[in-house]
Write a protein that binds this DNA or RNA. Structure first.
Length: 877
RNA sequence: GGGUGAUUAGCUCAGUUGGCUAGAGCACUUCUCUUACAAAGAAGGGGUCACUGGUUCGAGUCCAGUAUCACCCACCA
């Protein structure tokens, strides 16, 4: 056995291990023969940058479940990919183009821009792929996909064609969210709302044919009055009842506009009268539709005032607001201005203020007669055809579907797939043809000059189909792996992505896209802030991996947090898991350097030679059971915690120490074998590395998950013996520390027990040797069933035994008395509580028998302890 | 305006179907470089589980309400 370093050095082994996994073909499910399958289509990160810690967090969760499934013998497919990320990538790449070449996209033209952006995405994808490998994700790279891959895309566009045939698609002029900077329409979810201090302007609109009467409206956006086509009041508002049906004169524009009544007006807000601008406000647009009002577009797509804005034409909205307010003041029509906190819509990508505009766009009717996307999506969730974890997200998703409005899917950007919609130059835009391929001629007039629709798709239209389109390009994959078992995503993608995937996949395939939907929380910095570029608090996964190793990063991302709950990440935390990895390394180092050591896959009951073997096998059995149960419940953080306790506190702290004295290499090899397997999904690199050092033939990644060990463990008895032994040792150490006795000063111990447990001390020599050598400093141990002549010793209860520890005069009597008194007080209190509970008739009649007998046992034990302690106190004073 | 989550040790957080005196990591105190590991070992100290009620034999856990914080949704002009 070659010399092993004292410190585990992940940097030296991780790359090589990943390469061996890849070359072994273990990520490709085709190489696994099994009837059981497991599939997780990985969420595609945006191919325009690099991985951040949030990606790493999600990937870790996915990989843990994936490796677990693989070890359970399932044909396991983790399918990776990248998203072209329409608007975001265009924003990123335009900036890059400007910074590096000083060019705008208009200057290089649509075709060239698309080509350059594509190359950019390919380049980033390559880099991001290398990052994903560093994290250790066991994905099948031979199946990697990009949302713009021809097969993936064509499958997604077919859904559009089908939807069009089914009447779910319509094109229409409607009010939409317009980002003036991105120069495109946005869907509702791409708009953020930000509370901002603003002003509420009260403007007097003169009544028609009157010099003295006015109706006063309140608005936060006075410039939009240029496009007003009505004033609305509540039908229940008596103040204005007599004005309904009359007209007002729109100041500055001198147009006559009707005063109408509408249920949607809140008579308690402002003056109760609202100016209606159908072209520039969503609610006004609705009201305008219902009252057949004219729409006057006075703000254009660059957020400038149009020709319909009269003398304000060409101004920005900001300039127009100032000018309008000033002019109204001059006319004495501005009644007052109040401060008002209200919420402003901004673009999710560039934070520019959204201008609501009416515009010709493509929409998906999410509640069509023939097929209601949102109702059917809601139904599968209600019926638990998709299990959502944690479950509280289920209600949020259902509520969202209930309130969902039609989905605007057209964008006026260049980066992304164009609509498969064709217009004939002859027939014009009124007649169009939907077809994946460019038609050779127009079905209406046979003309051959056909041009494609300029619009590109909302990026969520294609990524919303990722769950099934990715499986369509290889024969049988769809049949084999759809629906997938697991989908993991950050909770911030709840509406953007999970909702769209459920709707679109359900529609396109008739089946749910996945059976389990697992939401992860956000990863925050040490202070609980989001990681962001502007804050400059980002943690680069690669830097962390370089410093602490991928395994430590993985552990720190999934442990100490509850599912769906946000968690914090910082160096000290990662360090503790790096320390754990090192602990596991040294445990293995000890094992591997033992004479004749090897990993052992199976044992039988006759391999158990001493009580410690018995004990550790029992503990291992409990751990395997517990971890398997927790995995089934998707509680991976708790599973890792249970395993950590077993590894460190049971195996390393006790079994290894005892093993140095009572060697049984077979059990040692067996336990380490199981420990490595159980840890592998969490920390694949170090476990695989140790596995290799142990000269295993097959790699750990494809080894089998430990079975429950009941067949062996049930044969065992007396495992509690070691628990008692631990108590004895701990008690002696404790007494030593309390009395400040140096370890090299030897003490003598008398172990006394007048109960049955004493007779159960199966192997006295074994016990004696261990007590002496496990840092107790005991040099003589004797056993006695009577207490006479032990008055000079410190007396302690340890497990089923009473110890008399003779410190050879070093005893601090005063301290000992104080301690005994304190202990007696707390014991008495505890016993009183327990006794009264056991005397309670209701408790005895209603509580489960198990609980009652447990508590009776405890009571008896504590009562004995108390009386012993009292005797001890008496002997001291 | 609606919703969700959080509130447990000095700090960061676990706590599964309600059940023995509520746990971990970090930090803290004392001791130890003992032949796997000082990135470690040994022994400790530290908590009215935000508050008020309720259900229950039994509540950190379930229910109702209150407070504070965080996040999400929303067409309050």
């Amino acid at each position: 056995m070659k010399e092993l370093p004292k410190i585990y050095e992940p940097q030296k082994v991780e790359n090589e291990i990943y390469m061996r996994w890849e070359e072994g073909g273990f990520f490709n499910p085709d190489n696994i023969a099994s009837d059981e399958k497991y599939c997780n289509i990985l969420p595609p990160p945006n191919a325009n940058g690099e991985l951040h810690i949030g990606h790493a967090s999600g990937y870790t969760v996915m990989d843990i479940f994936g490796r677990w499934a693989r070890m359970k013998g399932k044909k396991t497919l983790l399918l990776p990919g990248k998203d072209h990320a329409g608007i975001q990538t265009q924003v990123v790449f335009e900036k890059k183009l400007k910074a590096e070449l000083g060019l705008s996209r208009q200057e290089i033209g649509r075709e060239e821009f698309y080509k350059k952006t594509y190359d950019f995405c390919m380049d980033r994808s390559g880099y991001m792929r290398s990052q994903e490998k560093k994290i250790g994700i066991s994905a099948d790279w031979s199946r990697e996909k990009f949302t713009l891959d021809p097969d993936v895309l064509s499958s997604a566009l077919q859904t559009f064609v089908k939807m069009h045939e089914d009447g779910l698609i319509y094109k229409g002029k409607r009010i939409i969210n317009w980002c003036p900077r991105c120069a495109t329409a946005l869907s509702d979810v791409e708009v953020l709302h930000k509370d901002t201090p603003g002003k509420l302007y009260f403007i007097k609109y003169p009544l028609e044919n009157s010099q003295t009467e006015f109706i006063t409206v309140a608005t936060t956006r006075p410039e939009t009055m240029l496009g007003d086509t009505a004033v609305a009041v509540s039908p229940d508002d008596e103040r204005f009842a007599k004005l309904v049906g009359k007209n007002a004169v729109l100041p500055l524009q001198n147009r006559s506009i009707p005063i109408i009544a509408d249920q949607r007006i809140d008579l308690t807000f402002g003056t109760g009268a609202v100016k209606i601008t159908p072209a520039h406000d969503p609610l006004d647009w609705q009201i305008g539709k219902d009252h057949k009002l004219e729409e006057i577009q006075i703000i254009d797509e660059k957020a400038l005032i149009t020709e319909f804005g009269g003398k304000y034409a060409g101004m920005t909205t900001h300039e127009a607001r100032k000018a309008v307010v000033k002019d109204l003041e001059k006319l004495n029509l501005l009644e007052k201005i109040e401060d008002l906190a209200h919420s402003v819509s901004i673009c999710e990508r560039c934070k520019t203020i959204i201008e609501p505009l009416t515009s010709e766009q493509w929409f998906i009717n999410v509640d069509a007669k023939k097929y209601s996307l949102r109702r059917l999506a809601k139904k599968v969730i209600e019926e638990n055809l998709i299990e959502i974890f944690p479950n509280n997200f289920k209600k949020i998703l259902i509520d969202w579907f209930d309130n969902m409005r039609d989905w605007c899917i057209s964008r006026q950007i260049w980066w992304g797939p164009r609509f498969p919609v064709w217009y004939c130059d002859n027939c014009g835009e009124q007649k169009y043809l939907v077809s994946l391929e460019k038609p050779s001629n127009c079905p209406h007039c046979n003309g051959t000059n056909l041009t494609q629709d300029e619009n590109t798709f909302d990026t969520w239209f294609t990524s919303g189909q990722w769950a099934h389109t990715t499986l369509k390009s290889r024969e049988n994959d769809f049949e084999n792996y759809y629906p997938s078992d697991m989908m993991v995503m950050g909770r911030d993608l709840l509406f953007f992505w999970s909702a769209r995937m459920i709707m679109l996949s359900l529609y396109a395939t008739g089946k749910v896209p996945f059976r389990n939907l697992f939401f992860t929380g956000l990863v925050l910095d040490k202070e609980g802030h989001k990681f962001s570029k502007s804050r400059g608090n980002g943690i680069d996964p690669l830097t962390v991996i370089e410093k602490f190793g991928a395994d430590a990063l993985r552990m720190s991302l999934i442990m100490d947090s509850a599912p769906g709950q946000n968690s914090r990440l910082y160096e000290e935390k990662i360090e503790t898991f790096r320390n754990f990895a090192n602990k596991l390394w040294n445990i293995s180092r000890y094992c591997l350097t033992q004479e004749g050591f090897k990993l052992v896959e199976e044992i039988s009951s006759k391999d158990i030679e001493n009580p410690a073997d018995n004990w550790i096998i029992y503990k291992l059995q409990m751990t395997v059971d517990e971890i398997s149960r927790l995995f089934e419940n998707k509680q991976i953080a708790l599973a890792a915690d249970v395993l950590k306790t077993f590894t460190w506190n049971d195996f390393a702290d006790w079994y290894l120490e005892i093993n140095k004295i009572e060697k049984n290499q077979k059990i040692l090899g067996y336990v380490l074998d199981k420990v490595l397997r159980l840890w592998h999904p969490f920390i694949p690199f170090i476990t695989e590395h140790i596995w290799t050092l142990a000269e295993q033939e097959k790699m750990l990644i494809i080894s089998t998950w430990p079975r429950p060990l009941h067949d062996i463990a049930t044969l065992l008895d007396g495992w509690q013996y070691v628990e008692n032994l631990k108590a004895i040792i701990t008690t002696i150490r404790n007494v030593r520390t309390e009395n400040k006795i140096e370890l090299d000063k030897k003490i003598s111990i008398v172990i006394n027990s007048n109960n049955e447990a004493f007779s159960k001390m199966i192997k006295l020599e074994f016990q004696e040797e261990i007590i002496k050598r496990l840092k107790t400093g005991a040099d003589s141990i004797s056993y006695n069933q009577s207490e006479s002549g032990l008055g000079n010793s410190i007396k302690r209860t340890a497990g089923a035994y009473t110890l008399f520890i003779n410190l050879a005069g070093a005893i601090n009597t005063e301290k000992e008395i104080a301690k005994a008194e304190k202990e007696i007080a707390s014991l008495e209190k505890f016993i009183a509580g327990l006794a009264s509970r056991l005397e309670n008739k209701e408790f005895v009649s209603k509580a489960p028998v198990q609980i009652i007998s447990q508590q009776q046992e405890t009571l008896a034990k504590k009562q004995t302890e108390l009386s012993e302690l009292k005797k001890h106190l008496k002997s001291l004073s």
